[in-house]
Nucleic acid binder design. Sequence first.
DNA 1: GTTGATGCAAAACTTTTGCAACACG
DNA 2: CGTGTTGCAAAAGTTTTGCATCAAC
Lengths: 147, 147
Amino acid sequence: MGITMSHLKEMFRERQYKLTAQRQIVLQAFLDHQDEHLSAEDVHNILRNQSSEIGLATVYRTLELLSDLGVLQKMNFGDGRSRYEINEASTTRHHHHHLICLACGKVKEFEDDLLETLENAVARKSNFKIVDHQLKFYGYCQECQEK
Amino acid sequence: MGITMSHLKEMFRERQYKLTAQRQIVLQAFLDHQDEHLSAEDVHNILRNQSSEIGLATVYRTLELLSDLGVLQKMNFGDGRSRYEINEASTTRHHHHHLICLACGKVKEFEDDLLETLENAVARKSNFKIVDHQLKFYGYCQECQEK
DNA sequence: GTTGATGCAAAACTTTTGCAACACG
DNA sequence: CGTGTTGCAAAAGTTTTGCATCAAC
């Protein structure tokens, strides 16, 4: 069970942010493109293509807002721009991680819940209060291995 | 046992790269600043401050070269620039990971060798040939917790 | 009505690139 | 000496910002 538009409305009311059309369609773009790691420009293009006009600066501002709220998670796959995806950690404890192909750059998802115990161990030893983690594997995807 | 300047010279000879003064002082900067996550500009400043003149473009080109060789590892902590550190994985199997404070942005290192088994499991299930991994924990450092 | 949000264009940054001069092997 | 490397300045790309206009509450 991920986040929904109603969740967003509630969060915004609580914090007295204005619920604008732009903010809703940005979240909707992520709901329509689950597990796709969209960049700011991706979101801008998606919205323009469905005739939902929005300024690129507003996209950036909204992505930052949604990240601060924990709705989105900002990530970096080394392609020179930030990418975002819905932060499942905000509603469930269901984590997934990323396999990044060093040859073609493709990013594949990987399900995992095995890091809980490690996280607890790290928290105890380091005196950090840990709230999230992010794990990336680098390697070569099957297709690139065959070449 | 990490990489040394002799290692670098040998690697360069093998691959017929030229061993320029600039390439040596860039590596030296990392040897002099272990576990510091330097950005291109950091390296540029460090070298300028010790009167080792070098162009910023050359720093970028050298960082890319050393990353391709596996000597450095490129990373991103969300501050809008790439950061690099000596890639211990190239000489030993001794990994370390990062604890990033969401309040003050400070990055702390964390020792770990526990991910080997997970890496193997992931490799088997995903058909990826995994060569490296990177793990980040997000949370609040002790100082920021006390505020 | 107020106040925060948007859109545009300009600005700020980081990173890349073209090209003449240079220096390693 | 030849070819790869450097330095500079310009270009490219992403992200941020100032400000007038607009719209949510």
